[in-house]
Amino acid sequence: MRDRWIFLLIVGVLAVGPFVQREVIATEILIFAVVALANNLILGYTGMLSFGQATFFGVGAYAAGLLTIHAGLPLPVVLAAATVLATGLAVLIGAVCVQRIGLYFIMLTFAFNQMFYFIAYSWTTLTGGEDGLPGVRRPAALADDLTFYVLVALLFLACLLLMKRVVDSPWGRVFRAIRDNEARAAAVGHDVRRYKLLSFTISAAFTGFAGALYSLLYGIVPIDAIHWLRSGDIVFMTLIGGSGHFFGPIIGAAFFIWLSETVSVVWDRWPMILGVVFALVVLFLRGGVVELIRRGHGLVTARGGAATAP
C-alpha cells in the first residue's frame, strides 16, 4: 500500500504547489507530468521508445486552440475533441510505426513528428506558422491563474488514477510482458502489435489532452509545442525521473520545467545544460531520480538497492 502513501504525498504537494511556485509554472509542471507519465506507459511499461510524443501534444494543443478561437465551444467539449483527435491520429501513425520494431520504431515516430511539425509550420493560415497560434482564451470563470491551477490539479489527479488503473489492469500486465520478452508474449497468444498500438494510443490520448490544457495555460500554441525537440524533452523528463517506477516521471517533469524556467532566464544557451544533465543521467544514473532515492533508501536500511530499470 505504498502507492497510497505516495498518492497522499502527491495530493499534499499539489495543495502547497502554488505557494511554492508561480501558479503558471506549477500548472505547467502538472501538464508535463501527465505527458511524462503517458510517455512512460510506452517507454517504461511497454518498452517502446517514441521520439514523436510532441506530435500528439502539439495536435492536442492546436485542436484545442482552434476550437476555442473559431468555434467558441465550451471547455469540456474542446478538451474532449482535442483528445479524440490526438487519439485518432495515434491510431494511424501507430499502425504504421508498430510494423517495425526497436530502432525503426524510434526513427518512424521521429520522422512523423517532423512531418506534422512541417504541416504546422507551413499551414500558416490555420496555425500561425512560426509565430504560433495566439488568442486562445480561457472561459471567464477560469481566467484567474490560481483557479486554472486548481482545475488542472484535479484533472492531473484524474489522469494519474486512470493511468494507474491502466498499468494495474490486464493490459498493463501484458504491456510489461511484452517489454520483458516480446517473442514469449506472442508465443502465449498475445497479438504483440495490437497491444503495442493500444499502449501507443492510450499514451497519445493523455498527451493530446495535456496539449489541450497547455494551449489554454498560456493562451498561445507556440510552434515549439510540436517540434521533435519537444519529443526529446518528454523522453528526458521520463528518464530523469525514472522510467522504472510509475510515479518517477512526475519528478522528472517537475525537474525539467523548473530547470528550464530558472536557467533559461539567465542563459540563452540553456539546452546545453539540459544536454549535459541528460548525458550524465544516461551514463551514470539510468534509473533516474527514483533510482537515486532507492540507493539512498538502500543505504539507510542497509539492504542495498534492488533497482531495476526496464
Binding site: 521508445l49 544557451r269 539540459l274 549535459v276 544516461v282 551514463l283
Partner: peptide, 29 residues
C-alpha cells in the same frame, strides 16, 4: 559515450547521442 554504453540497452546509446546533439548544437551557437 557510445563505447561505455554497449552493454546497456541501445535506447541509452541513442539518448546519449541525442544529449550530445543538444550540447553540440549549442556549441555551434
Amino acid at each position: 559515450g557510445v563505447r561505455r554504453l554497449y552493454t546497456a540497452h541501445h535506447d541509452y546509446q541513442l539518448l546519449f547521442l541525442f544529449a550530445v546533439a543538444l550540447i553540440l548544437q549549442e556549441t555551434i551557437i
